[in-house]
Nucleic acid binder design. Structure first.
Length: 800
RNA sequence: GCUCCUGUGGUGGAAUUGGCAGACACGCUGGAUUUAGGAUCCAGUGCGCAAGCGUGCAGGUUCGACCCCUGUCAGGAGCACCA
């Protein structure tokens, strides 16, 4: 058979579609498999081959599961709200709705040409009313449950995109979308109280199967720390300054205190602070700094001492000064810290700069030169003196604080609440009404979806105001509660909203009564295997787990964790070894590859090019290698003979079935393909195989290269599709060899190999080794000291 | 700065997790075929003329180390004054 991919690909894609073989069925008596890939953002530039690699992994798993008899849900959709489309719309003057539709069409075409086994009947588009109605609905439920609040704060603002960004979207002081510098700006911001779920999100990680580095990143992001709260008495008052510390054991070493420049205690004692003008000036200066500038100045500590305000160290009763500095932030802990310069690097730098005492309380370092953060014997510490372990000292100090009624154990998280609004057009309108009499009132559930009004000029307003604010008919409304005149919220939700629950919608995408029926959710959840990019494991993955756990808590979904297993694929780099991007001009369009080499070659190559989880550069000559492989596969059809099986080939086929089956589960697609290539090489050498053997091979390769496999399966006389044929089984006994070649070492160095029975005893192995000429010569005149025999692997003779 | 990951031929990468390093593929070399190019097929391909030497570098543990331990260098990712 000739490998004529152009003649066969459309044919089989049509047949798959006509027979509907990839539609998940709602027969809930069958075992299910829910495989999920991250739905794409339909950008104007179309897909590149990185998307193909991202989907090919679970594509192979899903196809294998179908052949194993599972009812498989392998859906796809489009995460279509967001800034790039809106920016492109402003530039081109084409409405984002139209751009989105065009882009989705383009993406759909690209995906279909690759022959992915997606269930195209369940496509979701986050910008459709029937979808975002439920995004708003979930938000409304959160509002009802008190998880939504509004606060005026300094926010990360991107002057270029004219939009407020979450901390997650503005890492390193750069806008995640346009990569320009962000600035601090005071704004009314909607927050989702994700911090309330910090402990649950952390605890939930214990029962899911995520790759270790994914789990670790989530843990770091949530950033749980255990320590203590302690109250420091303000001198001359009955008032306290409350601090949070993870090192209560070092309290005897506290020589000063630092509070955030915005700390409310400054207002409270304004009249008695001698240098209040200096403090105000410093505070203003800090407010002007961007997050980026703050982090750039890590080493160079700044601050101002508060004149006229001191506190008492509760451990030793000493009076200590209080400073303000921007290295302490209002947003973490209590906005105030006890400073232990001898044992904390930041406090050390600060004390050195301001000439504050440094008192060693833990032995082990040299505090003349640097802070010592390690373990050691407690000194200069009153009742803690002599204790050698940190844990014991901490317990004792917390005990003392609670006895005095001025402190207790405490837990803090790094994770911040989620800034949830954007002043942009292309997003879900936030379903809230501002009423002068009733305050914030949720749009009634029966009025959802709150439609995004169509508008011509959707450029953001100059003051960073949402474009929706310009539409009076949208803004002016009546309060759902009192019926009086009210104003609608004009901000929209961030792009992360729609993707926080899409996997739930796939289970029942056409339901217009609920976001999904309980029956379907119960059957399909949790997602058995979720694969996507590493760039989404802290944001999207945390946000969606949060939404899901919220829905679980209010009884809307049957399981607490949405994803049973999460893996990640590595990037495809451009041929130049750089990250693929439109601006570098090193992208590869999957359509071009399909045109020149065929869809099967594209699929096989993206999985064969390297370890699935690692980044690897695109190489066109290696693509050709995969083409050659599939040509040789097609050639097998001409090698079928009635001569009967040969033991060597039969055994190799069983071994290959075993290896490929296991490798798919481990996402080791590259070695699975290598094993099949190896098998082919052996068959070519041998010259023939039986029709049954070819049938096994074709089914084994089918998840990787389904078009050519369908063609060959049909040529073998099958009426049914290969895609629904049974996954090949292997016989363990036939994967075992009767004899094995093992290495013989003299003093740990390989000197020869011998072929012996697989179950040979040590004595037989040694006898066989001694019969080997090379070994015999090397052992001549020496005494054997030791013999190590590992059956099937190695024989090591130590001789002197 | 902190945390984590990765260093294997000319290249992408294998190695049953302590047991023959370099599977599989690319590339390259030679040959066959071809008017030529391309394609295909055959042979070879870690380094070294050799004995030997080889998994970033230096030590260690072990009968035996790409794998474990200590130190060190390089690259990447994440977090970034988190008290």
């Amino acid at each position: 058979m000739k490998y004529d991919f152009k003649a066969i690909e459309q044919k089989w894609q049509d047949r798959w579609e006509n027979e509907g073989v990839f539609h998940a069925s709602e027969d809930h008596s069958k075992p299910k498999f829910y495989g999920l890939v991250e739905f794409p953002y339909p950008s104007g530039s179309g897909m590149h081959v990185g998307h193909i690699k991202a989907y090919s992994g679970l594509e192979v798993v899903s196809r294998k599961r179908r052949m194993q008899g599972y009812n498989v849900l392998f859906p796809i959709g489009f995460d279509a709200y967001g800034l790039p489309t809106e920016n492109s719309a402003i530039k081109t003057g084409i409405h984002p709705r139209e751009l989105t539709d065009r882009n989705i069409e383009k993406f759909t075409g690209q995906l279909k040409r690759v022959g992915f086994s997606f269930d195209w009947d369940r496509v979701v588009d986050t910008t459709e009313e029937s979808y975002y109605k439920w995004t708003q609905w979930i938000f409304r439920r959160m509002f009802d449950e008190g998880l939504v609040f509004r606060a005026k704060t300094l926010v990360n603002y991107c002057p270029h995109c004219k939009v407020v960004l979450s901390n997650e979207d503005s890492q390193g002081g750069k806008c995640d979308i346009c990569h320009n510098d962000i600035v601090q700006k005071s704004k009314d911001v909607w927050y989702l109280r994700i911090t309330e779920y910090a402990d649950k999100l952390l605890g939930g990680l214990d029962k899911v199967d995520y790759l270790p580095n994914i789990k670790l990143q989530q843990e770091n992001w949530i950033g749980k720390s255990e320590g203590a709260f302690a109250n420091f008495r303000i001198s001359g008052t009955d008032d306290f300054l409350r601090i949070y510390t993870t090192r209560p054991d070092t309290m005897f070493g506290v020589t000063f205190m630092v509070i955030a420049p915005e700390h409310p205690v400054i207002e409270k004692y304004r009249s008695q602070i001698a240098n209040i003008a200096d403090l105000d000036a410093y505070k203003d200066e800090c407010a002007k700094k961007t997050e980026f500038e703050r982090t750039q100045l890590v080493k160079d500590k700044t601050g101002v001492r508060i004149e006229g305000l001191t506190v008492i160290n509760p451990a030793n009763g000493k009076e200590i000064p209080v400073y303000i500095s921007d290295y302490v932030m209002m947003g973490y802990g209590t906005g105030a810290i006890m400073a232990v310069p001898a044992h904390d690097e930041r406090d050390y730098d600060f004390a050195k700069k301001f000439g504050i005492d440094i008192i060693e309380v833990i032995r082990g370092g040299n505090i003349e030169e640097a802070a010592y953060t390690g373990d050691g014997e407690m000194v200069n510490s009153g009742f803690l003196n002599g204790i050698a372990t940190k844990a014991e000292a901490i317990t004792k100090m917390i005990g003392y604080l609670s006895e005095q009624g001025i402190g207790e154990r405490g837990i803090q998280f790094k994770m911040k609440d989620w800034a949830f609004n954007r002043q942009r057009y292309w997003g879900e309108p936030i379903p809230i009404v501002h009423c002068p009499a009733c305050g914030m009132v949720g749009v009634p559930y029966e009025e959802l979806p709150l439609r995004l009004p169509n508008m011509e000029n959707f450029a953001p307003g100059e003051g960073g105001e949402s474009p929706l604010a310009k539409i009076e008919s949208f803004v002016n409304c009546t309060c759902p509660k009192c019926g009086g005149p009210a104003k609608r919220e004009t901000d929209t939700m961030p792009q992360w909203a729609g993707s926080s629950w899409y996997f739930l919608r796939y289970t029942d995408p056409k339901n217009d009564k609920e976001f999904a029926s309980q029956e379907n959710l119960k059957y399909w959840l949790p997602v058995d295997w979720y694969n996507g990019g590493m760039e989404h494991v802290t944001r999207h993955l945390i946000y969606s787990r949060f939404w899901h756990r919220f829905l679980f808590d209010i009884g809307e979904v049957p399981v607490d964790e949405p994803y049973a297993k999460r893996t990640a694929q590595g990037l495809i780099l451009g041929p130049d070894g750089e990250k693929m991007s439109k601006s570098r001009g090193n992208t590869v369009d999957p359509n071009d590859v399909v045109d020149e080499f065929g869809a099967d070659v594209l699929r096989v190559y993206t999985l064969f090019m390297g370890d699935y989880a690692s980044a690897a550069p695109w190489s066109e000559s290696s693509v050709k290698g995969c083409k050659r492989f599939l040509e040789r596969v097609a050639g097998l059809a001409d090698m079928v003979s009635g001569k009967g099986e040969t033991e060597a080939i039969t055994s190799l086929i069983h071994k290959t079935v075993k290896k490929v089956s296991q490798d798919i589960e481990d996402m080791k697609f590259n070695t699975a393909i290598a094993a099949m290539m190896s098998l082919i090489n052996n068959i070519y050498e041998h010259g023939s195989l039986t029709a049954d053997e070819l049938g096994v091979f074709v089914r084994l390769l089918c998840p990787f290269a389904p078009h050519i496999c369908e063609e060959m399966w049909e040529a073998l006389g099958h009426k049914e599709l290969c895609a629904t044929a049974d996954w090949p089984e292997y016989d363990e006994a036939k994967t075992q060899d009767a004899t094995v070649e093992i290495a013989v070492q003299i003093c740990g160095k390989v000197k020869s190999t011998i072929r012996i029975a697989a179950d040979a005893k040590q004595d037989d192995a040694i006898a066989a080794a001694k019969a080997d000429e090379k070994i015999a010569a090397l052992l001549d005149g020496k005494t054997i000291v030791k013999e190590i025999y590992v059956p099937g692997k190695i024989l090591n003779i130590v001789a002197k």
